[in-house]
Amino acid sequence: MDAQLQEEARVSVMVVDDHPMWRDAVERDLREAGFDVVGVAATGDEAVRRFPACRPQVVVLDLQLPGRSGVEVTREVLQHDPSARVLVLSASGEQADVLAAVKAGATGYLVKSASRAELLDAVRRVARGDAVFTAGLAGLVLGEYRRLSAPADPGRPTLTERETEVLRMVATGQSYKQIAERLVLSHRTVQNHVQNTLRKLQLHNRVELTRYAIEQGIDGDDGGDGDDGDGAG
């Protein structure tokens, strides 16, 4: 127990939330559990500004922020320090925002009604590099792969059969432990499958962003050839 506490004491966390009551509650819970809260921020801009100085291992991030959105904060923070981890803690859990945050690199998602124990557990797991999923997020990720697979293109990420199976089990509320037992896999293997589903999405997202940036750049240099309105369909 002591050793575990010692290990956790080294986990540094930044809390970003525009609701003072929440920010204080989360900060207090984290401190009491032995985490090192190295910074707090109430807006997206504050978060991005303070992040380089605080260098937290985990950012606990609300998505609905004034100014820069949680999705943008996720992207910029991870650009600055790719080894940092983002745990989204959202009240409304709007699907589009959650999915965008995950694609931007967040590796954990919890709704705010989660218990204190669930939150602490999620921060620990995210800090270790695990992906923390809710059933709802698993559904969204399954849906995103389905949407990506619609136009058959070899460049698009796809799920292996095993990954789909695991995600569907997460989406029906099964814990990694239960999944591991049912599929006769190690807990670690289940973890890896789940993480892979996120990693592929995030990689694809980065490639898409880069491709978009290059296209925009080329257009800008050459003045474009007037084919702007040309869609893929």
């Binding site: 609701h19 929440w22 609905q64 009240a91 409304s92 705010k112 009604s113 204190r116």
Partner: peptide, 15 residues
């Protein structure tokens, strides 16, 4: 914005 605020409070009350 209102929903988000209400959800925050409901979450806190549950906690």
């Amino acid at each position: 914005a209102v929903h988000d605020g209400v959800l925050q409070v409901l979450g806190l009350v549950q906690r």
